[in-house]
Amino acid sequence: DTTWRMATKMPVDSPEGRVFERFAELTEDYTDGALTITIFPNEQLGKENAVLEQLQANIVQLYAEGYGYMKKWEPALDWTAPSFVFDDYDHWVRFMQTDLVQSWFDNAAEQAGVRMLGDPTRILRGPFLVTVSNVPINSAADYQGLKLRMHESTRAIDAWTALGAEVITLPWTEVYQSISKGIVEGLNSPIALVEAMRFNEVAPHITRIDEFWQSIGFMVNAQAYEALDDETRMGLLKAYDEAGAFSRELMFDVAQQSIARMQEQGATYSVLDTSPLIETMATYYQEQEAAGNLPVGMLDAIEATRDSTQ
C-alpha cells in the first residue's frame, strides 16, 4: 500500500480544505485502501516555490494549488488566466483544453517531472473574483484612478494599470489595515476570502468582475503517478473527478451564504458589466502580442475557442 503526501496552502476548515479532505477520503475508498493521502495544510511544508521543488524531488507527491506557479518551468503557464478576455467560464475551459495549453503542461512535465492529475479546470477556486472597495464601483469607469491593491505580479500590475487603476502592491496580510487607513481603496479577491479576511468591514462594496477564472490544479509527481497500478490510478482519477463536482457545489453554496451574511451586515453586492474592460484589454493584448510579450499562439487560441453560435 502506498501513502502520498499532499501539500496545500489552505487551512483544514476552509472550503478548499474540505474539498481536499473529501478527495483524500474518496481516494481511500475508490482504491480500496491501496492509496492513502496525508494532507499537510497551512503551508506547513513551505511556500509555492519550495513545495514545487519538493514535488519535483518526490518528497511530496501532490500539490493542490494554482498551476500558474509552474511558470518557473514553463513561463507560458503564467498565461492560463489572462484578464478580461473570455466570454464566460465555458470559453475558458475550451481554451484550457486546446493543444496549445496542453503543450505548455507537457513541457513543464518534461522539464520537472511534474504533471497535472486529470483535467486542471475541475476543482474550482474562488469560485469567482470580486473587487472589494470602500467606494462603490458602478461601471468600468470607476476604476479610473482607483487605488487598487495588487500582489507583486508584474503581469497583473501592468494589466490593471492599463485599465486605469492606480496600482499599489501590498502583502495580503496588510490589506485590511491599509484599506481602513486609506492607503488603498480596494482590492481584487476571490469571493471566498472576503468574509474570512473581514474585508467587508472596511470595504463594504462588493462587485463581481469575472476578471478570469481560477481552478486549483492537482500537480502530481509523474514518477509517483506512474508507479501506481492501473486499478489504483483509475480510483484516484475517479476520486479527483468527484471532488471536482463537490467543489463546484460547495464553493457556490458557501459564496451565496457568505454574500447574504455580508449584505445583512451592510455590504452591497453587484455584478459589473465588464464589456468596456474587455474592449480595453483587447487592444492592450494586441499591443502586447505585437511586442512579443505573449506566448505564441495564445490570442489565436482564445479566438478559435470563442463560441461561434453567440
Binding site: N49, E53, Q56, K71, K72, E152, S153, T154
Partner: peptide
C-alpha cells in the same frame, strides 16, 4: 539546478526580474 524562475516584482533596470 532546481531554483529556476524569478523573484516576483524585483525588477532590474535592464528589464526582467531578479532570478531566484
Amino acid at each position: 539546478a532546481t531554483s529556476t524562475g524569478i523573484y516576483d516584482g524585483a525588477v532590474l533596470p535592464s528589464g526582467g526580474e531578479v532570478p531566484r
